[in-house]
Design a protein around this nucleic acid. Sequence first.
DNA 1: AAGATCGGCAACCGCTGTGGT
DNA 2: AACCACAGCGGTTGCCGATCT
Length: 267
Amino acid sequence: MNVYETGFISETPQSEEDMDVKKGPWTEEEDFTLKAYVNIHGEGRWNSVARLSGLKRTGKSCRLRWLNYLRPEVRRGNISLQEQLLILQLHSQWGNRWSKIAQHLPGRTDNEIKNYWRTRVQKQAKQLKCDVNSKQFRDAMRYVWIPRLVEQICSSSGSHSAQQSSSTTTTYADTIGSVRVDPRLLPELSGTSSDSLDAQVSSVSDLTNSKYPNSLQNGSGSGNTIAGTWGGVEIEATDGGDSMESVWNEEDIWFLRQQLYDDDDLN
DNA sequence: AAGATCGGCAACCGCTGTGGT
DNA sequence: AACCACAGCGGTTGCCGATCT
Protein backbone atom coordinates (compact mmCIF):
# COMPACT_ATOMS: atom_id res chain seq x y z
CA MET A 1 0.00 0.00 0.00
CA ASN A 2 1.48 3.30 -0.97
CA VAL A 3 1.00 6.85 0.11
CA TYR A 4 -1.45 7.59 -2.69
CA GLU A 5 -3.78 4.80 -1.67
CA THR A 6 -3.87 5.69 1.97
CA GLY A 7 -3.65 9.41 1.53
CA PHE A 8 -1.13 9.70 4.32
CA ILE A 9 1.97 8.03 5.57
CA SER A 10 1.82 5.88 8.64
CA GLU A 11 5.09 6.96 10.15
CA THR A 12 5.19 9.46 12.97
CA PRO A 13 4.93 12.87 11.40
CA GLN A 14 8.08 14.91 11.55
CA SER A 15 8.36 18.59 12.23
CA GLU A 16 9.80 20.81 9.53
CA GLU A 17 12.96 21.30 11.58
CA ASP A 18 13.48 17.58 11.97
CA MET A 19 13.39 16.71 8.31
CA ASP A 20 15.61 18.16 5.66
CA VAL A 21 13.29 20.49 3.82
CA LYS A 22 13.49 20.41 0.08
CA LYS A 23 13.53 23.68 -1.84
CA GLY A 24 13.58 24.69 -5.47
CA PRO A 25 11.56 23.53 -8.44
CA TRP A 26 8.95 20.84 -7.94
CA THR A 27 9.32 17.50 -9.66
CA GLU A 28 6.50 15.67 -11.45
CA GLU A 29 6.51 13.12 -8.68
CA GLU A 30 6.05 15.75 -6.02
CA ASP A 31 3.25 17.34 -8.03
CA PHE A 32 1.54 13.99 -8.31
CA THR A 33 1.88 13.35 -4.59
CA LEU A 34 0.50 16.74 -3.64
CA LYS A 35 -2.35 16.51 -6.12
CA ALA A 36 -3.31 13.08 -4.88
CA TYR A 37 -3.22 14.19 -1.28
CA VAL A 38 -5.33 17.30 -1.86
CA ASN A 39 -7.81 15.36 -3.97
CA ILE A 40 -8.39 13.06 -1.04
CA HIS A 41 -8.18 15.44 1.88
CA GLY A 42 -9.01 18.77 0.36
CA GLU A 43 -7.21 22.10 0.64
CA GLY A 44 -6.06 23.70 3.84
CA ARG A 45 -3.99 22.58 6.82
CA TRP A 46 -0.92 22.88 4.68
CA ASN A 47 1.55 22.01 7.38
CA SER A 48 -0.29 18.73 7.83
CA VAL A 49 -0.26 18.22 4.08
CA ALA A 50 3.48 18.65 4.07
CA ARG A 51 3.98 16.25 6.97
CA LEU A 52 1.47 13.56 6.11
CA SER A 53 1.90 13.39 2.37
CA GLY A 54 5.52 12.47 2.72
CA LEU A 55 6.65 15.51 0.82
CA LYS A 56 9.80 17.07 2.19
CA ARG A 57 8.37 20.51 1.63
CA THR A 58 7.13 23.22 3.93
CA GLY A 59 3.42 23.81 4.27
CA LYS A 60 3.89 27.16 2.62
CA SER A 61 5.60 25.60 -0.33
CA CYS A 62 2.81 23.04 -0.75
CA ARG A 63 0.15 25.72 -0.56
CA LEU A 64 1.92 27.89 -3.10
CA ARG A 65 2.46 25.03 -5.50
CA TRP A 66 -1.18 24.02 -5.29
CA LEU A 67 -2.59 27.49 -5.65
CA ASN A 68 -0.29 28.68 -8.41
CA TYR A 69 0.12 25.55 -10.45
CA LEU A 70 -1.79 22.41 -9.53
CA ARG A 71 -5.31 23.69 -8.92
CA PRO A 72 -7.49 22.45 -11.79
CA GLU A 73 -8.97 25.88 -12.44
CA VAL A 74 -5.63 27.61 -12.79
CA ARG A 75 -5.02 29.21 -16.17
CA ARG A 76 -1.50 30.18 -17.09
CA GLY A 77 -0.01 32.31 -19.80
CA ASN A 78 -1.70 34.27 -22.58
CA ILE A 79 -3.15 37.08 -20.57
CA SER A 80 -5.87 38.43 -22.82
CA LEU A 81 -6.41 42.07 -23.72
CA GLN A 82 -9.51 42.10 -21.54
CA GLU A 83 -7.54 40.75 -18.64
CA GLN A 84 -4.78 43.30 -19.20
CA LEU A 85 -7.35 46.05 -19.18
CA LEU A 86 -8.86 44.72 -16.00
CA ILE A 87 -5.48 44.49 -14.32
CA LEU A 88 -4.66 48.09 -15.18
CA GLN A 89 -8.04 49.22 -14.00
CA LEU A 90 -8.01 47.29 -10.75
CA HIS A 91 -4.42 48.21 -9.99
CA SER A 92 -5.22 51.88 -10.36
CA GLN A 93 -8.01 51.28 -7.89
CA TRP A 94 -6.29 49.10 -5.33
CA GLY A 95 -2.56 49.34 -5.99
CA ASN A 96 -0.46 46.26 -5.27
CA ARG A 97 -3.32 44.29 -3.76
CA TRP A 98 -2.52 41.34 -5.99
CA SER A 99 -4.75 38.79 -4.35
CA LYS A 100 -7.68 41.18 -4.45
CA ILE A 101 -7.05 41.86 -8.12
CA ALA A 102 -6.70 38.14 -8.79
CA GLN A 103 -10.16 37.52 -7.34
CA HIS A 104 -11.58 39.38 -10.31
CA LEU A 105 -9.65 37.37 -12.87
CA PRO A 106 -10.94 33.81 -12.66
CA GLY A 107 -8.19 31.24 -12.90
CA ARG A 108 -5.42 33.77 -12.54
CA THR A 109 -3.22 33.78 -9.48
CA ASP A 110 -1.93 36.75 -7.57
CA ASN A 111 1.57 35.59 -8.40
CA GLU A 112 0.92 35.65 -12.11
CA ILE A 113 -0.65 39.08 -11.99
CA LYS A 114 2.20 40.36 -9.90
CA ASN A 115 4.68 38.95 -12.38
CA TYR A 116 2.74 40.47 -15.25
CA TRP A 117 2.87 43.83 -13.57
CA ARG A 118 6.55 43.62 -12.75
CA THR A 119 7.62 42.48 -16.18
CA ARG A 120 5.22 44.02 -18.69
CA VAL A 121 3.96 47.11 -16.94
CA GLN A 122 7.19 48.15 -15.29
CA LYS A 123 8.89 47.66 -18.61
CA GLN A 124 6.61 50.29 -20.10
CA ALA A 125 7.42 52.67 -17.25
CA LYS A 126 11.10 52.04 -17.80
CA GLN A 127 10.73 53.02 -21.42
CA LEU A 128 9.28 56.32 -20.34
CA LYS A 129 12.02 56.66 -17.76
CA CYS A 130 9.55 57.25 -14.99
CA ASP A 131 8.43 55.41 -11.92
CA VAL A 132 5.59 52.98 -12.33
CA ASN A 133 3.79 54.64 -9.43
CA SER A 134 4.33 58.18 -10.62
CA LYS A 135 1.43 60.36 -11.60
CA GLN A 136 3.00 60.75 -15.02
CA PHE A 137 2.94 57.06 -15.66
CA ARG A 138 -0.55 56.66 -14.30
CA ASP A 139 -1.71 59.40 -16.65
CA ALA A 140 0.11 57.75 -19.51
CA MET A 141 -1.68 54.53 -18.72
CA ARG A 142 -5.01 56.21 -18.48
CA TYR A 143 -4.76 58.35 -21.57
CA VAL A 144 -2.67 56.23 -23.89
CA TRP A 145 -2.40 52.63 -22.85
CA ILE A 146 -5.91 51.92 -21.65
CA PRO A 147 -7.54 53.60 -24.66
CA ARG A 148 -5.32 51.52 -26.90
CA LEU A 149 -6.28 48.36 -25.13
CA VAL A 150 -9.91 49.33 -25.46
CA GLU A 151 -9.42 50.02 -29.12
CA GLN A 152 -7.72 46.70 -29.66
CA ILE A 153 -10.41 44.85 -27.78
CA CYS A 154 -13.09 46.58 -29.77
CA SER A 155 -11.43 45.95 -33.09
CA SER A 156 -10.73 42.33 -32.30
CA SER A 157 -14.27 41.72 -31.12
CA GLY A 158 -15.83 43.67 -33.95
CA SER A 159 -17.57 46.32 -31.91
CA HIS A 160 -18.34 47.62 -28.47
CA SER A 161 -20.81 45.74 -26.43
CA ALA A 162 -22.78 48.95 -26.55
CA GLN A 163 -23.92 49.00 -22.99
CA GLN A 164 -23.31 52.63 -22.48
CA SER A 165 -24.50 54.02 -19.23
CA SER A 166 -27.26 56.53 -19.43
CA SER A 167 -26.01 58.34 -16.38
CA THR A 168 -22.66 59.31 -17.77
CA THR A 169 -21.42 61.20 -20.76
CA THR A 170 -18.59 58.76 -21.22
CA THR A 171 -18.36 57.79 -24.82
CA TYR A 172 -16.84 54.41 -24.16
CA ALA A 173 -19.18 51.58 -23.54
CA ASP A 174 -19.15 50.74 -19.89
CA THR A 175 -18.62 47.17 -20.86
CA ILE A 176 -15.84 46.46 -23.29
CA GLY A 177 -15.58 42.91 -24.38
CA SER A 178 -16.42 41.03 -21.22
CA VAL A 179 -14.74 43.62 -19.04
CA ARG A 180 -16.68 46.21 -17.18
CA VAL A 181 -14.70 49.40 -17.44
CA ASP A 182 -14.76 52.13 -14.88
CA PRO A 183 -15.55 55.22 -16.96
CA ARG A 184 -13.53 57.37 -14.59
CA LEU A 185 -10.40 55.67 -15.85
CA LEU A 186 -11.07 56.53 -19.41
CA PRO A 187 -10.60 59.87 -21.09
CA GLU A 188 -13.57 61.39 -22.75
CA LEU A 189 -12.83 61.24 -26.39
CA SER A 190 -15.72 62.92 -28.05
CA GLY A 191 -17.69 66.05 -27.61
CA THR A 192 -16.20 69.47 -27.15
CA SER A 193 -15.87 69.95 -23.45
CA SER A 194 -12.62 69.08 -21.75
CA ASP A 195 -14.00 69.68 -18.28
CA SER A 196 -14.04 66.07 -17.27
CA LEU A 197 -10.51 65.58 -18.37
CA ASP A 198 -9.32 68.68 -16.59
CA ALA A 199 -10.79 67.32 -13.43
CA GLN A 200 -8.95 64.05 -13.82
CA VAL A 201 -5.46 65.38 -14.18
CA SER A 202 -3.50 66.29 -11.11
CA SER A 203 -1.70 69.55 -10.64
CA VAL A 204 1.66 67.82 -10.72
CA SER A 205 1.28 66.59 -14.22
CA ASP A 206 -1.55 68.84 -15.10
CA LEU A 207 -1.65 68.50 -18.79
CA THR A 208 -4.00 71.42 -19.05
CA ASN A 209 -1.71 73.97 -17.51
CA SER A 210 -0.23 76.85 -19.43
CA LYS A 211 2.73 74.77 -20.55
CA TYR A 212 0.48 72.25 -22.23
CA PRO A 213 -2.50 74.18 -23.43
CA ASN A 214 -3.55 71.44 -25.78
CA SER A 215 -3.19 68.67 -23.33
CA LEU A 216 -5.04 65.63 -24.52
CA GLN A 217 -7.86 67.64 -25.82
CA ASN A 218 -10.64 65.66 -27.20
CA GLY A 219 -9.74 64.03 -30.40
CA SER A 220 -11.91 62.56 -33.03
CA GLY A 221 -13.47 59.59 -31.38
CA SER A 222 -15.38 58.35 -34.34
CA GLY A 223 -15.86 54.66 -34.69
CA ASN A 224 -13.09 52.58 -33.16
CA THR A 225 -10.40 55.11 -33.85
CA ILE A 226 -9.17 56.68 -30.69
CA ALA A 227 -7.21 59.82 -31.12
CA GLY A 228 -6.37 62.93 -29.20
CA THR A 229 -3.62 65.41 -28.59
CA TRP A 230 -1.50 65.48 -25.54
CA GLY A 231 0.72 68.44 -25.03
CA GLY A 232 0.35 69.24 -28.66
CA VAL A 233 1.45 65.80 -29.70
CA GLU A 234 -1.05 63.80 -31.62
CA ILE A 235 -1.73 60.44 -30.12
CA GLU A 236 -3.62 58.00 -32.22
CA ALA A 237 -4.38 54.39 -31.59
CA THR A 238 -3.22 52.97 -34.84
CA ASP A 239 -1.07 50.29 -33.42
CA GLY A 240 -2.87 47.02 -33.75
CA GLY A 241 0.17 44.99 -32.82
CA ASP A 242 0.82 42.83 -29.86
CA SER A 243 0.06 44.79 -26.77
CA MET A 244 2.77 42.90 -24.96
CA GLU A 245 5.22 45.00 -26.92
CA SER A 246 5.74 48.65 -26.31
CA VAL A 247 2.54 50.55 -26.07
CA TRP A 248 4.22 53.89 -26.65
CA ASN A 249 5.19 55.22 -30.00
CA GLU A 250 8.14 57.55 -30.35
CA GLU A 251 6.02 60.66 -30.04
CA ASP A 252 4.54 59.44 -26.78
CA ILE A 253 7.95 58.77 -25.35
CA TRP A 254 9.27 62.09 -26.55
CA PHE A 255 6.45 64.04 -25.05
CA LEU A 256 6.27 62.16 -21.79
CA ARG A 257 9.98 62.52 -21.27
CA GLN A 258 9.79 66.21 -22.04
CA GLN A 259 7.17 66.56 -19.40
CA LEU A 260 9.22 64.70 -16.85
CA TYR A 261 12.24 66.84 -17.49
CA ASP A 262 10.17 70.00 -17.33
CA ASP A 263 8.76 68.90 -14.00
CA ASP A 264 12.27 68.34 -12.77
CA ASP A 265 13.19 71.86 -13.83
CA LEU A 266 10.41 73.21 -11.71
CA ASN A 267 11.81 71.55 -8.60
C1' DA B 1 30.01 28.99 -31.70
C1' DA B 2 30.40 30.76 -27.26
C1' DG B 3 29.92 33.91 -23.71
C1' DA B 4 27.16 37.84 -21.90
C1' DT B 5 22.96 39.88 -21.03
C1' DC B 6 18.09 40.13 -20.49
C1' DG B 7 13.34 38.87 -19.49
C1' DG B 8 9.88 35.87 -17.67
C1' DC B 9 8.41 33.14 -14.21
C1' DA B 10 8.37 29.88 -10.25
C1' DA B 11 9.43 29.72 -5.75
C1' DC B 12 11.17 31.50 -1.34
C1' DC B 13 11.20 34.79 2.53
C1' DG B 14 9.54 37.76 5.95
C1' DC B 15 5.79 39.96 7.75
C1' DT B 16 0.92 40.43 9.21
C1' DG B 17 -3.65 38.93 10.39
C1' DT B 18 -6.59 35.61 12.50
C1' DG B 19 -8.31 32.04 15.28
C1' DG B 20 -7.69 28.80 18.98
C1' DT B 21 -6.18 27.77 23.66
C1' DA C 1 -4.23 39.06 27.78
C1' DA C 2 -0.63 36.40 26.00
C1' DC C 3 1.01 32.97 23.32
C1' DC C 4 1.13 29.90 19.45
C1' DA C 5 0.16 27.90 14.96
C1' DC C 6 -1.32 28.59 10.67
C1' DA C 7 -2.84 30.96 6.40
C1' DG C 8 -2.26 34.49 3.38
C1' DC C 9 -0.02 38.42 1.27
C1' DG C 10 3.46 41.15 -1.10
C1' DG C 11 8.36 41.74 -2.03
C1' DT C 12 12.33 39.59 -3.65
C1' DT C 13 15.41 36.17 -5.51
C1' DG C 14 17.31 32.86 -8.52
C1' DC C 15 16.90 29.82 -12.36
C1' DC C 16 16.52 29.09 -17.13
C1' DG C 17 15.60 29.90 -21.85
C1' DA C 18 15.92 33.44 -25.43
C1' DT C 19 18.36 36.93 -27.56
C1' DC C 20 22.32 39.66 -28.42
C1' DT C 21 27.25 40.56 -29.31
